[in-house]
């Protein structure tokens, strides 16, 4: 990922900033500019998610793409945030021990390195609480 492409979404990556439709009280992450239910009645506003949620489903990755093969095995989960939106992210520590229904909260970690010379891409992962 190029530096500008990473930079463009820093608020989403660092602080889980999404949007919500104030008409129907639905939260979106990643952010939407239009509510698919309310359409032209949409009243979209920026919303920072709390970062707390619950594991909906998970898997343990043993054979990863080259950028992540030093981290295997690692847990990847779909987390339903308390405000309603779902996010796919890594769950750190205790690989394989995370279960569906576990409470998790966001933590700030390195997500990807552009090699030894490129930028470090920071972002959100989750940890059990």
């Amino acid at each position: 990922m190029t530096a500008p492409r990473f930079w463009r979404k820093i608020n989403q990556r660092y602080r889980l900033v999404g949007t919500e439709c104030r008409t129907c009280d639905t939260a979106f992450f990643p952010p939407r500019d239009l509510c698919p239910e309310c359409r032209r009645e949409s009243d979209i506003a920026e919303k920072a998610f709390s970062g707390e949620g619950e594991v909906v489903t998970k898997t343990v990755v043993h054979d990863a793409i080259s950028d992540y093969d030093a981290e295997t095995p690692y847990t990847l989960a779909v987390v339903e945030l308390d405000e309603g939106a779902r996010i796919t992210a890594q769950v750190v520590e205790g690989d394989g021990e995370v279960d569906v229904g576990d409470r998790v909260e966001a933590c700030f970690r390195r997500v990807r390195d552009e090699g030894e010379e490129g930028i470090v891409q920071y972002g959100t992962k989750f940890e059990r609480v």
């Binding site: 660092y14 030093a70 981290e71 750190v92 520590e93 933590c107 700030f108 970690r109 390195r110 997500v111 470090v120 920071y122 992962k125």
Partner: peptide, 16 residues
């Protein structure tokens, strides 16, 4: 530190 932790991530966790 964990493999994905560094001075920036530790600083952010402390600040938060």
């Amino acid at each position: 530190p964990d493999e994905d932790e560094d001075t920036a991530t530790i600083s952010v966790e402390a600040a938060r």
